[in-house]
Design a protein around this nucleic acid. Sequence first.
DNA 1: ACAGCCATGTAACTTGTTACATGATTTT
DNA 2: AAAATCATGTAACAAGTTACATGGCTGT
Lengths: 193, 193
Amino acid sequence: MAIRQGLLALLDEGPAYGYQLKAAFEERTGGTWPLNIGQVYTTLARAERDGLVAQLETDDDGRVVYEITAAGRTEVAQWFQEPVRRETAPRDELAIKLAVAVTAPDVDVTAIVQTQRGETMRTLQQLTRLKRDADEDADLAWLLVLDRLIFDAEAEARWLDHCESRLARKAGEKAVRRPASGRSPRAAQGSAR
Amino acid sequence: MAIRQGLLALLDEGPAYGYQLKAAFEERTGGTWPLNIGQVYTTLARAERDGLVAQLETDDDGRVVYEITAAGRTEVAQWFQEPVRRETAPRDELAIKLAVAVTAPDVDVTAIVQTQRGETMRTLQQLTRLKRDADEDADLAWLLVLDRLIFDAEAEARWLDHCESRLARKAGEKAVRRPASGRSPRAAQGSAR
DNA sequence: ACAGCCATGTAACTTGTTACATGATTTT
DNA sequence: AAAATCATGTAACAAGTTACATGGCTGT
């Protein structure tokens, strides 16, 4: 619902047409989440179907201007009033992956963790660079989004470390096997019952 | 794709029927993400359509047992090999909300932040309690998922603090207005061009 | 004239999700 | 016998997403 609500909130600031909404949305997220223009229209069409927005007369240049309705305002107000709940959040793919991997036989979980950490660190560096470059001029909204991504990536990295140490401890309990195993990060070669 | 891949990975450990998959999935995530049984079947049907799984003969009790195919194994192996990429991750609703709110006029962003922190802290406590209770017997997968949720919630809380201080700084720059404003957390009353 | 952007829209598809229908088996 | 649980499935929808069609306008 994030996009729908976001566009709705933008319309709450005043009528606008499709391209303006796309631009406004991307400006605030600093292009972190580029929005396919088609999606703006499908989202608007669905919002109109649900009575949250309405088409105004086309403007002087023939552009289709949308306006928020009373029902739409109510929904925006609610969106701002109510916190985002954990239950609403989508299932986390990485967590599912590790949860399944850790229980499965013949899957090198450590390799998964390490690969993922590589990716996470790369992302983190990229974000940090972006922040350094943007810090001067960028507007508050974009900076906050950026920090959000950074905080998230850091949490992910920390969690991966945590997983690794837990895995190491578990492996330790299993005592000594494979005396001098060269690292073999090949994971998931299937199996049978 | 998380559920689909998860079920596929479970099938990679051996054939199973719908209810078994639901149980296996929920066992690993400790019931954090309960799975509607109907979804198991729709997911399986779609995976079958895509040639990733196949129905075996029904077992002795007439249950429909699914088996992973070669193509399915390839996909699971890939899933484990490749890291979860940031670009794949869904847009974060909270970030969008604050990004829009912070730029909009007549929206009390501080109120939003505080409400959200309340929710986040409540979640965090709940998770911590779960962890304390579970720590004895629970299996590794469930503990890791739990920690993931905790790390995430902590990052969110930290980010909210960060947002608040940024907002305070910005408000400071605007200098003194509204000498003794009673807090008016009414948000988003619309506007016109 | 042609390339390229602005602008609107639509058709088609994916994943996730739930509500419901239908039986069989088990428990009370 | 009734209630609960196991088990399979389907219909229908939401939200996100993209590829494509279409036309106007602008600069070269």
